[in-house]
């Protein structure tokens, strides 16, 4: 591994804002149960950004929704500041709602088309009784300015804005309650490429200035690399690989992570990357492959992959991989 892992990074318990353990979510459908998320565990430290990466259908959005109890998780726990969010009754959860917020992927459907911007942001303020009258008005204007809009925008309806501006309104709404943790669910993937960078910069800026802790959900590894401290790679609801961003990027150990990285463009033309092109689509979660769920698309799959469900093996400080062949494959990975 790289030399940076030499320094002992013993996770400091007080440092961890959210600790997710064994999060699973099953949906019952007409044709049987679907395991959208299966036994996910990870920690989010204060002030850090954890990236959850995966293709569509990997369960990353469901995992995020579960953490906010927008979708009820089937099992597991999420210890937020010492309290298990999953076992809180709805009433008690309400107090925690203020501390965890979400930024949505689609800037169009995430704003009520019949509410003016000031009412959208104001609703957040009112729900938790944070400000009234002139203070409320001032707070709305401050939030708008903070996300790069102007106070005059308060009286407008969402349809009068561009996608990037709408996303800024969504961010302002999330910030209105001064949350400690923000889950950003693909916040830029619905935006034009030219606007993506602006919104990403805004998110990063806000994160630094306000000391926010974030879970950043994305299918785009370049975006995650740019922002995140930790990375969790999901495939079909299972964790394939997780660890510090630097370590995962420098030494991707799971064939799936390698494939994802291979699809990401590299700004340096002299860098030669292995070409791994995944065949086919992500399998149906209704009928997941036996053993390792990735084996049907894995270029390195062998018979044993169908037999055993891979356990998490530690390959570096905080870096772990779920692949039975990771040790032998590592030699073939020399670029």
């Amino acid at each position: 591994m790289t030399d940076t892992t030499q320094t002992t990074q013993q996770p400091d318990a007080a440092d961890i804002l959210l600790s997710v353990r064994g999060l699973s979510k099953q949906f019952s459908t007409g044709s049987g149960p679907v395991k959208a998320v299966e036994d996910i565990s990870f920690d989010v430290r204060r002030g850090q950004i954890v990236g959850i990466v995966g293709e569509s259908g990997s369960g990353k959005t469901t995992a995020g929704r579960c953490l906010l109890r927008l979708v009820e998780p089937s099992s597991g726990e999420a210890i937020f500041d010492g309290v298990d969010l999953f076992s809180l009754p709805e009433k008690a959860l309400r107090a925690y709602r203020r501390r965890l917020q979400i930024i949505f992927q689609d800037p169009y459907s995430s704003l009520n088309p019949r509410m003016r911007v000031r009412d959208i942001i104001g609703e957040a303020i009112d729900t938790h009784g944070l400000a009234k009258g002139a203070a409320r008005q001032a707070r709305i204007e401050e939030l708008l300015t903070r996300v790069g809009l102007s106070p005059e925008h308060a009286r407008r309806y969402p349809n009068e804005f561009s996608g990037g501006q709408r996303q800024r309104v969504g961010i302002a709404r999330a910030l209105a309650v001064e949350p400690e943790l923000i889950i950003a669910d693909e916040p830029v993937s619905a935006l034009d490429v030219s606007v993506q960078a602006q919104v990403l910069n805004l998110i990063q800026e806000l994160q630094r200035e306000l000391g926010l802790t974030m879970i950043f959900i994305s299918h785009d590894l370049t975006v995650v690399e740019y922002l995140c401290d930790e990375i969790v790679v999901l495939y079909l609801g299972r964790i394939m690989e997780q660890g510090p961003a630097r370590s995962v990027y420098a030494n991707p150990r799971h064939p799936y992570t390698r494939a994802l990285l291979a699809t990401a463009p590299v700004p340096d033309p002299t860098v030669r990357r292995e070409r791994v092109i995944l065949q086919g689509d992500i399998p149906s979660p209704l009928n997941p492959p036996s053993g390792c769920v990735f084996r049907t698309r894995c270029p390195h799959a062998i018979a044993a992959c169908a037999e055993t469900v891979p356990t998490r093996e530690t390959v570096g400080s905080g870096h772990s991989v779920a692949c039975i062949r990771q040790a032998e494959l590592v030699e073939t990975y020399q670029d």
Partner: peptide, 10 residues
């Protein structure tokens, strides 16, 4: 999502 946002706000 805007209803989800409202639920997330409590």
């Amino acid at each position: 999502p805007y209803v989800e946002a409202a639920r997330a706000l409590g």
